[in-house]
Amino acid sequence: MTVLIEAKGLQKTFRITKRRTGFLGGVRSIVDPEVRSVEAVRDLSLSIQQGEMVGLIGPNGAGKSTTIKMLTGILKPTAGHLQVAGLNPIQQRRSLAARIGVVFGQRTQLWWDLPLIDSLQLLRHLYRVPEIRHRENLAQLRKMLDLDEFIDTPVRQLSLGQRMRGDLAAALLHEPELLYLDEPTIGLDVIAKARIREALLALNTKRGTTLLLTTHDMDDIETLCPRMLIIDHGQKLYDGTVTAIRERFGGERTLIATLDSASQLPGNQQNVPILPDLPAGVQVLSSDGPTLVLSFGRETMPAHELVAWLGARYPLRDVTFQEPEVEDVIRRIYEEGLLLKEKAL
Rank of each mutant, 00 (worst) to 15 (best):
G58T: 07
G58I: 01
N60V: 12
G63N: 07
S65V: 10
T67C: 04
T67R: 00
T67G: 05
T67P: 04
I68R: 00
I68T: 00
I68E: 00
M70H: 01
M70D: 00
M70F: 09
M70N: 01
L71R: 12
G73P: 03
G73C: 05
L75F: 14
K76N: 08
P77C: 05
P77T: 06
A79G: 07
L82R: 00
V84Y: 05
A85D: 14
L87W: 04
N88Y: 03
N88G: 13
N88W: 04
P89G: 04
I90W: 12
I90V: 14
Q91K: 15
R93L: 04
R94N: 11
S95L: 13
A97Y: 01
A97K: 15
A98M: 12
R99V: 05
V102S: 04
V103K: 01
V103L: 02
V103A: 05
G105N: 04
G105C: 05
L110S: 02
L110R: 00
W111V: 12
W111N: 07
W111H: 13
W111D: 12
D113H: 14
D113V: 02
L114S: 13
L114H: 06
L116K: 09
I117K: 10
I117P: 00
D118E: 15
S119Q: 08
L120T: 03
Q121E: 15
L123Q: 10
L123I: 07
R124A: 11
H125C: 03
L126C: 10
Y127F: 15
R133T: 13
H134C: 12
R135P: 03
E136Q: 11
L138R: 06
A139Y: 09
Q140K: 14
L141Q: 01
L141C: 01
R142L: 08
K143N: 12
M144I: 11
M144L: 15
M144F: 09
M144K: 15
L147H: 04
D148M: 02
E149P: 08
F150N: 01
D152G: 08
T153D: 11
V155Q: 00
Q157C: 09
L158F: 13
G161R: 06
G161L: 12
Q162P: 03
R163P: 08
R163H: 01
R165I: 07
D167N: 15
A170G: 07
A170I: 08
A171Y: 11
A171Q: 05
A171F: 13
L173M: 14
H174Q: 08
H174I: 10
